[in-house]
């Protein structure tokens, strides 16, 4: 039995960039995409490497929305709240999902299955309102369509 490695080599990520402050965000981004969040150890390693004080790196990591300091769920549900989606009821979908998943936007369900997020605009306003589940776009999303999709996630 053999498995592909799930964890990424954090040292390898760190060594991708020179140890300068200007690469702090690059490093955080790479760690974020590898782990889907920024583990505390990784943040410290990044600080060691770039020479940025921990508090400052923490400040940067909490400033930008794409960084998460908490582990993310296996699936990501993103609701677009761009203007077009807003006009067509994007908020309603967020409310609906919050009720269904019993988490607030930005949070992850207790079983680490689903993370609910909102985004400002995905650039596919023609399909509004849009919900993206992992890489799957739900065009003209409705409560009913979401029900189906969530069920399929749980079944996986």
């Amino acid at each position: 039995m053999s498995t592909a490695p799930v964890e990424v080599d954090i040292d390898e990520i760190i060594e991708r960039y020179p140890g300068k402050q200007e690469y702090l965000i690059f490093l955080l981004q790479d760690v974020q995409s590898a782990f889907r969040y920024i583990p505390p150890e990784a943040l410290e390693l990044i600080c060691d490497h770039t020479g940025v004080p921990l508090s400052q790196a923490y400040s940067v990591a909490t400033f930008y929305k794409s960084f998460s300091l908490k582990p993310k769920g296996e699936h990501q549900v993103k609701v677009c709240l761009g203007t077009a989606c807003h006009l067509k009821g994007g908020e309603r979908l967020v409310d609906d999902l919050e009720r269904k998943l019993k988490v607030k936007a930005g949070e992850t369900t207790a079983d680490l299955l689903v993370t609910l997020e909102t985004v400002n605009c995905l650039g596919c306003c023609a399909l509004s309102p849009v919900v993206v589940v992992d890489d799957d776009y739900l065009a003209q999303a409705t409560s009913g369509k979401l029900n189906k999709k969530l069920k399929s996630l749980a079944a996986q």
């Binding site: 943040l43 004080p53 508090s55 790196a57 909490t62 929305k65």
Partner: peptide
């Protein structure tokens, strides 16, 4: 010269704090 504290978060959620 120690940078023990920083701004944490952004905008209306911003607070003064330490890492974690």
């Amino acid at each position: 010269g120690v940078s023990a504290i920083s701004m944490v978060g952004r905008g209306v959620h911003k607070v003064i704090g330490t890492p974690y």
